[in-house]
């Protein structure tokens, strides 16, 4: 699929710098007609191939709602404004805000995939891993059964699930939490998406397992030129794999910069507060609630 970067692929590199998903002035309110509560207040973001965009913030800052909006998975009483534009290298521009459910279904899972905090709730408990992996593929990529199976084995092997051929016949509960998250990632990758949304992908995992998943996400972003949105409250995770970081608070992005600058030279007071609340040798202070 995607080869290692060579001198010839210079135009690929320039393509990589143009965003595939552009969020512009996104507003999200939730509530009934005359009582809409504003959750996201006009944020802008751009996801570029091969880069991991971090979205940091505390619970209630609107970061999860933002990622759900990109998949059109908001509750029916949500009011969305602004623009989310998918610039698919294969198929031109698409505006996701205001799109019908049917059209979104075409994009969801196929061009934009998502993984969640709790892999056991995103995997179907009653279906084998094989069925869950090939179901997507046969539907969207129109592969034969045999091709789909080989494709699935390849994916499981890529996410480093041991004995992939055998794993296809097993059920999610027969795997550890870390393996389940790897399987969820394999399913997300099944249709070769251009954007991967990862909402707290390692929060439910043990720290030693988390390290492995972080390696995997970083590698996938690099080798498949995936544009990754990483939503997390964990600044350690952020520091490990995010290239760019946006800090959200009360539905607004208060600061957005490349990783190094966020940590070394935070501009906004809230970013500084977040950083200083981390357990460090110098002691820590409290963030006002």
């Amino acid at each position: 699929m995607i080869d290692a970067p060579t001198p010839e692929s210079a135009d690929a590199a320039s393509a990589a710098s143009t965003p595939v998903l552009t969020v512009d002035g996104l507003t999200i309110g939730i509530g009934s007609r005359n009582n809409v509560k504003s959750i996201v207040k006009g944020i802008s973001l751009a996801l570029t191939p091969g880069r991991v965009q971090g979205l940091a913030g505390e619970s209630g800052s609107g970061k999860t709602v933002t990622s759900l909006a990109m998949l059109g998975l908001l509750p029916s009483n949500a009011v969305v404004g602004g623009s989310i534009r998918l610039t698919d290298p294969e198929g031109g521009d698409t505006e996701l805000v205001g799109m019908s459910h049917r059209q979104l279904n075409e994009i969801r899972g196929r061009r934009i995939a998502m993984i969640f905090q709790d892999p056991s709730s995103s995997l179907h408990p009653q279906l084998t891993v094989g069925v869950q992996l090939t179901d997507h593929v046969t539907r969207h990529l129109k592969l034969s059964k045999k091709q789909a199976r080989e494709h699935a084995i390849g994916l499981l092997d890529r996410v480093r699930v041991p004995n992939p051929a055998e794993a296809l016949g097993r059920y999610p509960h027969q795997f550890s939490g870390g393996q389940r998250q790897r399987i969820a990632i394999a399913i997300a990758l099944a249709c070769d998406p251009v954007v991967l949304l990862a909402d707290e992908p390692t929060t439910a995992l043990d720290v030693t397992v988390q390290a492995g998943i972080l390696h995997l996400l970083r590698d996938l972003a690099d080798e498949r030129q995936l544009a990754v949105l990483l939503v997390t409250h964990d600044l350690g995770v952020m520091s490990a794999i995010a290239d760019d970081i946006a800090v959200m608070r009360h539905g607004e992005i208060v600061e957005s910069n490349v990783r190094h600058n966020i940590f070394a030279n935070p501009q906004h007071a809230y970013t500084r507060e977040l950083l200083s609340s981390l357990p460090g040798a110098e002691g820590f202070q409290e963030v006002s609630e």
Binding site: G212, G236, V237, A242
Partner: peptide
């Protein structure tokens, strides 16, 4: 395995 929040982009060691 604990990722250091230092902004250096270093992946923690995975077993």
């Amino acid at each position: 395995a604990i990722p250091e929040p230092d902004g250096k982009g270093i992946l923690p060691a995975a077993p």
